[in-house]
Simulated assay, not measured.
Amino acid sequence: MEILSEQELHNLAMNVVGKDLEAKGFEFIAVNSKLKKDPQFVCLKNKKLHFVVVKAVLYPENPKEFDVVYMEIMREHALKFKARTYYAGVGIANAENYEEPVVRDRNYVINYDGIQEIV
């Protein structure tokens, strides 16, 4: 049993959010899947710039909760580019037992309610 690394969990979260943004009509300008490099997505929609910060969150943490101070710093950075800022928390858990780590080639569950605008 091989436990997924932090980068692999982050990539899973990126895929979930990327598909959601695409379905909502966002056009990708830049995508950065490296850990600790924010924002992960720089997008255009309706000729407006959007910064999206993606975070993979393991059970039992709440994927909707974010670091308010950090996201305010990101929002101030985005404002310099006249961009809107969003947080996308993606909860990931082992499907067979939420208390167990997420492992390669085993089922997992996703808890994702979409992007949250930081205003």
Rank of each mutant, 00 (worst) to 15 (best):
S33H: 14
I73W: 05
G25I: 05
M14F: 11
V42T: 15
Q7G: 13
A95K: 13
M14V: 15
E61G: 05
I118Q: 06
K34H: 12
N62I: 08
K45H: 10
K55Y: 07
E2Y: 11
N111P: 03
L4K: 08
N62S: 13
Y108F: 15
Y112I: 04
L12A: 09
V103P: 00
F41C: 00
P101G: 10
A56F: 03
K64T: 09
C43P: 02
V102R: 01
A30K: 13
V53P: 00
K19T: 13
V17S: 01
G18Q: 10
P39Q: 07
V53M: 10
N107F: 12
G114M: 11
K48F: 11
Y59F: 15
I73G: 04
H10C: 03
N107T: 07
K34A: 12
Y112S: 05
V102T: 05
V119H: 10
N111V: 05
A56V: 06
P101I: 09
A13W: 07
T85S: 08
N97Y: 09
A23L: 14
R84N: 06
S5K: 13
R104Y: 09
E61L: 14
E61F: 11
A95E: 09
E6V: 08
V57C: 08
F26A: 04
N15P: 02
F51L: 01
I110R: 04
G114V: 04
L12I: 15
F51I: 00
P101M: 06
I115V: 12
F28W: 05
Y98V: 09
N15M: 10
A93H: 06
L44V: 13
K45I: 05
E76G: 03
K64W: 06
V103D: 01
E27H: 09
I29Y: 12
P39Y: 04
E6L: 12
M74Q: 11
E2K: 15
K82P: 00
L21E: 03
K47V: 08
M71C: 02
E6G: 06
Y108G: 04
Y59M: 05
N94V: 05
G89I: 01
L44G: 13
A83W: 00
N94E: 05
L79R: 11
M1S: 12
V54C: 03
I3E: 15
L49Y: 09
